[in-house]
Structure formats: structure tokens, C-alpha cells
Simulated scan of single mutants.
Amino acid sequence: MQRKKMNIWPYLLITPAVLIIIAVVLFPALNAVLMSFQSYDLRRPSDIGFVGLTNYIDVLQDKLFWASLWRTILWVVFGVGFQFVFGFILANLLNKGFHGRGVVRAVSLIPWVTPGVLIGLMWRWIYDGSYGVLNDLLMKVALISAPVPFLAQESTVMPSVILTIIWQGIPFFALMLLAGLQGVPGELYEAADIDGATGFQKLFRITIPAIKNTIFVTTLLRIIWVANSVDVIFNMTGGGPAYASQTLSVYVFNKANALNLGYSSTMSLLLTFLLLLVAIPYLKSMFANQEA
């Protein structure tokens, strides 16, 4: 019996993509793992060497690390939570038929397609205590009597940057959930109307169950992206004042910017591990729902 020749063309076609993934993803990841076990401070290149678990012990004893982790939790929970709520509302509005719907859909994407650096600079100007638009509006409607330095005081800086990330992420949820809503058969709502179902009954018994997989995936992606987000906060506050807006990803960036690559690699790996703890149960729940 003649042996069937193996077709190598599929493997040759995917080789460039595999090599790129190895170069830009796998190699840097392995290098970060290696550096986390080293004293890797470029300010003292002569001291670079293997230190075992010293970096991990130092990070876990670092009060600033735990404070940054707590702010990251607040950043993700409130940021992603309100993004979902307002994005879901916007998706339902955009799913309705009205004149100029295409234009509204296009305009609503502006916050999402705007670069994070530009968003940070724009909102820093909006919040500015001397000439910011927000202070001007609040004083004109008599809600405040004097300008508030939103980004310069610890009590207001974190809510301010969270509001910014909410504004940025709403269009992403709206776009993804809108795609899911358009796949829900209209006959289901017609049957519900005939049965006398209320708006809340249709929402929780038809709409949400029909797009739950879209909700799962979209929320998971945003949790990962927001937790790793650096550009918005860094360009608005740099993590200040007095580290009051420094999330874990910003702390990692600041340490790397200070050339302490071993310490920053350690924190980035711990952040990756924490995100895996969130992602794995989330994905298991999603696949279990699909099998059911």
C-alpha cells in the first residue's frame, strides 16, 4: 500500500506567523520570567545576576505593591462595571430603528478609536484646576464655588481617572453587545408581547440569556485590557499625587522606566497570574454554559 505523502504547504504558510508570535510574544515572556529571578537593574549593570526568589519576596513585602493592587481592583471593578452598564444601554438604543442611526453608531465609536495617550492629555485638560472645562461648567451652574484640582488631590484623582476609562470603554461594549443583540430573533419578542411580558421580563428571560456568551467574552477582554492599561493614567497623573492613582500596571511601568527590570518583571508576572485566576474560572463557566 502506497504511503500518502504529507502536504507541507499548510505548515510553510503558517511559519511566518508562528515566527512572529515567537519573536514578539513567547521570547519576551520567557525573558521576563528569567529576569524576575535576577537582580536586573540597568543602573548597576555590574550587579546583574541570579537572586532566586528574592524579587518575589521583596514584592510581597512591598506596601506600595499591595496599595497598587487594591487600586487596580477598584480600577477594574468600577471601570469595567460601568462600561458594561452604559455600553449595554447604548447597544439597546443603537439597536432600535431611527433616522441617522448609522451616523450615531459611527460617532459613538470616537472614544474607543481615540489613542489612549490623546485621551489622557484631553481629560487632563478637562480636569485642570486652573483652566479646565469641568471646573468652568460646575462653577457656572453653582455646584462649586472655587476650582477643584481633581487630579492634584488624593480624594478625587482615582474617581477622575476611573470616569475617563469608563468614557473610553463604553463604545467597545456597545459595539460587541450590539452585534449580539442583532442576532436575537425578533419572533421571541413578538411571542413575549403576545404573552403580556413586561420589559424587564423580556430583558432577563430573552435578551441577556441570548447574548450571555458575548457578555462573558467581552467582559473578560475588558478586564484584561483595563487591568493592563497604562497610557491613560500615566498621561493624566503619572500615578500621583503621592501614588494615589498608581495601579499595578502603572507601578510596573514606573519601575521599568527607572530601569529596575527585575523588579518590574516580577510584578508583571504576578499581575499575569492574578488575571489568569480571573480568566480560567470565567472561561470554564462560559464553556459549561455552552455544553449545557
Rank of each mutant, 00 (worst) to 15 (best):
K4A: 11
K5C: 03
W9A: 12
P10D: 05
P10Y: 02
Y11M: 13
L13C: 08
L19A: 11
A23F: 15
L26P: 09
F27H: 03
A29V: 04
L30V: 08
L30S: 03
M35T: 09
M35W: 08
F37P: 07
S39M: 03
Y40F: 15
D41P: 04
S46D: 10
V51E: 03
G52L: 14
Y56A: 09
V59W: 12
Q61Y: 11
K63P: 10
W66A: 06
S68H: 00
R71I: 00
R71L: 00
T72M: 04
L74C: 04
W75P: 01
V76P: 05
V76R: 05
V77P: 06
G81H: 03
G81I: 03
V85H: 09
F86M: 11
G87S: 05
N92G: 15
N95K: 07
H99F: 13
R101E: 12
G102D: 15
G102F: 10
V103G: 04
V104Q: 08
R105P: 09
L109I: 11
I110D: 08
I110M: 14
P111E: 01
T114L: 01
P115M: 07
V117A: 07
I119V: 14
G120W: 02
M122P: 01
D128Q: 03
G132R: 00
L134M: 10
L138D: 03
L138R: 07
K140T: 10
V141T: 06
V141N: 01
V141R: 07
V141I: 14
I144E: 05
A146H: 14
A146Y: 10
P149H: 04
F150T: 00
S155K: 15
T156H: 06
T156E: 12
S160W: 02
L163G: 15
T164L: 07
I170R: 10
I170S: 06
P171T: 12
Q182S: 03
V184H: 05
P185E: 12
G186I: 10
E190N: 05
D195F: 00
T198M: 14
T198K: 12
I206D: 09
I206L: 10
I208N: 08
P209A: 05
K212R: 11
T214N: 00
T214A: 00
I215S: 06
V217M: 10
V217Y: 00
L220G: 08
I223Y: 04
I224N: 01
N228S: 14
N228M: 10
V232K: 01
I233Q: 08
I233W: 05
N235F: 05
G239C: 13
G239W: 08
Y243W: 09
A244K: 02
K255P: 01
K255T: 10
N257I: 11
A258N: 14
Y263H: 07
S265Q: 06
S268P: 03
L271Y: 02
V278I: 14
A279G: 09
Y282S: 15
S285F: 15
M286C: 15
N289I: 10
A292S: 14
A292L: 11
